[in-house]
């Protein structure tokens, strides 16, 4: 059952026809040819498909495109400003915070959103003081907040410092 929707992806508006069954991830990758967000598990169990959906990080594999008509979507490709990479992207490169690169766009989108959440004072399950006004992003906090993004090459020990550096600046 096809339906027409519009999506704003990385600042550009797209009108497309989707099967009601089409997930946001498949709409991006198969209908629009925007392949920055990756399909790793298709069930919200790996985080490779993470995008900003109306400003918040979300698994694009678990949301239906039709239910998100008109949504604003940002992928890792949209974080860069033309040739100018986002500071998080530059930090991932300099810390070698990836190997195969497949989980990387999801990690980076997730990390950017995570800093905003921390900025807003959102706690995590490892926060010592749940009611603290300010979140101190130490190793444990970053690792917990990034645990929805699996990395099988296991670059975690570089991902955490890469994010910490951006958090400090």
């Amino acid at each position: 059952m096809d339906q027409e929707i519009t999506l704003r992806v990385d600042g550009k508006e797209h009108t497309l026809t989707v099967d009601t069954r089409t997930t946001l991830l498949d709409a991006l990758r198969e209908r629009l040819g925007i392949t920055s967000a990756k399909k790793g598990c298709d069930h919200g169990q790996c985080g490779a498909c993470t995008v900003l959906l109306d400003g918040r990080r979300a698994n694009s594999c678990l949301v239906l495109a039709v239910a998100n008509a008109g949504a604003e979507v940002v992928t890792a490709a949209g974080l860069a400003d033309g040739d100018e990479l986002h500071p998080m992207q530059r930090s991932f490169i300099s810390h070698d915070a990836f190997q195969c690169g497949y989980c990387t766009p999801g990690q980076i989108v997730s990390a950017v959103a995570m800093l905003r959440e921390a900025e807003a004072g959102w706690p995590s399950v490892v926060s010592e003081d749940l009611d603290a006004d300010e979140v101190v992003l130490d190793h444990g906090e970053i690792a917990e907040r990034m645990s929805g993004n699996l990395c099988r090459c296991a670059a975690y020990a570089n991902i955490v410092p890469a994010i910490a550096e951006v958090a400090r600046s």
């Binding site: 990756k38 530059r90 070698d96 690169g101 980076i108």
Partner: peptide, 21 residues
Amino acid sequence: LDRVEGHLKVRGAATYANEWP
């Protein structure tokens, strides 16, 4: 050295098999 393909991977622009147009 930094990975030469790093600038592609951090944008999700390195082309994996299922992504060829």
